[in-house]
Write a protein that binds this DNA or RNA. Structure first.
Lengths: 150, 150
DNA sequence: GGCAATCCGACCATCCTGGTAGGATATGAG
DNA sequence: CTCATATCCTACCAGGATGGTCGGATTGCC
């Protein structure tokens, strides 16, 4: 399993928000019920999305969440990154700029042949996430829903 | 971190084997020393590669491991798959054919919009792993080694 | 005021990961 | 034959991440 359930839940949540009109906020409870997810856990998930500026919120009665931008302008790479942190196939990719942990073979720096491989994998992942917008997923969700009703 | 250290160690091991002439086997100890990895743990890693038919082994004194095929004919997707198991971005992708666990929303089967996303991600990963051969990594390793010596 | 909601931090059980330990087995060298 | 070297196999274990719960503080509509 490459991505944690935070990503799964978070993406579901975003799709659900994308299906709602942005006029009035949607409560987490409604989403938790619709998707069958634990409310308390969803709170933690949506907090990440909010801090990343992807959703906005209103407190109090009749409060809730809505997309900060139209779904067309939200690339899934931003969503997943907000939920999972940096998208790195390997440990040494994470701290590249921050600490000096890197891989066990930092001494060999340039000689690290595996880095070439992980770079390509990372590229493949990011590219696929960048070329997918939330709007596509919402659209897909709507279509398959119709197909089921019919 | 998307891939575990098994993948990291296993890939290093394969590169190391690729650098050796396949005439005579290379002992794990030599690789462990060269790469600074724990021998006992490498044993578990190499066992997976052997069971996947990627390396062969000889027991006893002067025994060791060597590539089962030329490095040019080894796609990294096979290596990573042997080390990590199925390459699945999400839980529900793993048991697709075996058990009936799938995602928490199996009831919605077709309606699962996130599946579209994970499919694309999975595609991106597999494509990048399929188009990279062990020979490339070995070549890269040799080049950067030269660059360092010079 | 009361209810519905977001917010926040602490807590917790369980699983996975990375690694160790110990031994059984095979085999070439002397 | 024996010894050193090596693969092979299984069990075990500590620590951290994961997925989730709980309790409460705060906010704001009715």
């Amino acid at each position: 399993m490459i991505f944690s359930s935070k990503a799964e839940y978070g993406v579901r949540l975003m799709v659900e928000l994308g299906r709602q009109s942005p006029e009035q906020p949607t409560s987490l409870k409604a989403i938790a019920d619709a998707e069958g997810l634990p409310l308390a856990y969803l709170e933690q998930v949506v907090a990440r999305l909010r801090k990343a500026g992807l959703v906005m919120s209103a407190r109090g009665a009749h409060g809730g969440y809505w997309l900060a931008r139209p779904a067309e302008e939200i690339a899934m790479v931003d969503v997943v990154q907000a939920l999972e942190g940096a998208i790195a196939p390997m440990e040494c990719f994470v701290h590249d700029h921050t600490e000096r942990v890197l891989c066990s073979h930092e001494a060999d720096a340039g000689r690290c042949a595996t880095k070439l491989l992980w770079m390509r994998v990372q590229g493949g992942i990011i590219r696929s996430l960048q070329t997918t917008t939330l709007a596509e997923l919402v659209e897909f969700s709507r279509r398959t829903e119709l197909a089921q009703t019919a």
